[in-house]
Design a protein around this nucleic acid. Structure first.
Lengths: 237, 237
DNA sequence: CGTGGGTTTGAGTGGGCTCAAGCCCGGTGG
DNA sequence: CCACCGGGCTTGAGCCCACTCAAACCCACG
């Protein structure tokens, strides 16, 4: 009758139990309660989960795919705040701060997500101190990263920041066997992370290529000289 | 024998009970336990509470004064992340993320602070769900502000940011009866918030003065035209 | 008075932005 | 099958905001 239901359930279980999810700190009882509530749903590229300034009714747990989280500036330009991937939980900030969404989140690569209603998330935090501390750790780590990026934006040149972002993307999403960044972005998206104009990204990428630091194949970026990039990212011009 | 001890205790009580402190969410039992542990201490201008990269053994609750929280960039330039004042709690980020301090905190105006050991803070979070949620709210709000500032740094001009910062400082620290900013900063400190060179701040401040937006009396800044500043801060150069 | 930290002002430079044109490439319709 | 179209990418030219460097000033303090 429901041949795929068991599969879905086990998929969720996999997701929550995975060691890179905060939810693996839940008790097995809490976990099975949670499994009764949530259903994974697949979202296609370009779909929007929630809009900046909108009310937010819960958080999303990412089982697969990539989601782009960004703010829209005064002139309409996107500023990408982060990308979410497997194991991440998004939207929790607005739920816990009890504020409107401060970002928009859009699917970059087809994603499988579980929606977790705000009330459920808050109940879990209230009743499970370990889980609560882990959620707090998550928020605090994100805050530390944000502070770092504020400093970088204020003090580093565009070139330094671009090199840094490439390394950061390699860290988060990994490289394939040919050292190609697994996340694929348009030049404009790159510029919206770095906080610069699209043309500047293009010029700097080809400069990096000239200098043998990277190679470019369409949107694919190969990191050839990680040390060199590191050197550029920390330092002078 | 100890004529000032009761005073200190009641001072702490005042501090924790104050509605702008997270600690007023504690039960009276928890509160009295906490009062037994902590002692307020006065720090003079220029003293450092903790250093970026150092181990952090607890958080500080601010009873009075102003503390400057900053990161040090690659070339030694400060980037001011925030100022803490009465009711704020600082250092909790590193405690809860279980990381080394990501900022340095230095006293800007003589301050009275209570040190709260990490273990105590974590115990309170574990045992009091309401307090825990409030701490989480704090972190999440800070995160939202950080995201906003990332966007501003990436997209706004120095002039827009300076106007914004002046308004923000007025919001946080208030104005006296003559519309003078209650927080007093050097030009260099202002530049280390805005993320620019000291000379740029100086030039823009005198431009603002020319245009009747502000007045300057040494380090004192009078806000004459808040609407005008708002207009500048959101928009085009 | 001299010394030093902070402030101010000027001059010059360049990083990075804007504007504009052309290219590439995949998709769509005649 | 080709022509056309549109979105993204690339490159060039020019300009301006904001940085750097340097000199002078102010003033509190010893």
């Amino acid at each position: 009758m429901f041949p795929d239901e068991p599969t879905l359930q086990s998929e969720c279980f996999q997701c929550f139990k995975s060691s890179d999810s905060v939810f693996h700190y839940l008790s097995s009882e809490e976990l099975s309660d949670l499994l009764k509530i949530v259903t994974p749903k697949t979202y296609g590229k370009g779909e929007t989960l929630y809009h900046e300034g909108g009310k937010i009714t819960g958080a999303y747990c990412v089982f697969s795919g990539i989601i782009k989280i960004y703010k829209t500036g005064f002139d309409g330009k996107e500023q990408i705040i982060m990308f979410a991937k497997k194991g991440d939980i998004i939207g929790y900030r607005s739920v816990l701060a009890n504020e409107l969404a401060c970002t928009t989140s859009k699917i970059l690569e087809e994603s499988k997500l579980c929606f977790i209603p705000a009330s459920v998330l808050i109940r879990l935090i209230k009743q499970n101190a370990v889980f609560s501390l882990e959620m707090m750790k998550l928020a605090c780590k994100e805050l530390g990263e944000a502070n770092q990026y504020i400093t970088d934006l204020a003090q580093k040149s565009v070139k330094e920041r671009l090199a840094e972002i490439l390394l950061h993307l390699a860290d988060s999403f990994g490289l394939d066997d040919k050292n190609t960044l697994k996340i694929v972005l348009t030049r404009e998206e790159l510029s919206n992370i770095v906080g610069t104009a699209t043309e500047s990204v293009i010029r700097l990428l080809s400069e990096f290529k000239q200098n043998g630091l990277i190679d470019l194949q369409g949107r694919k970026i190969l990191l050839l000289d990680v040390q060199g990039l590191k050197h550029i990212s920390n330092a002078f011009s």
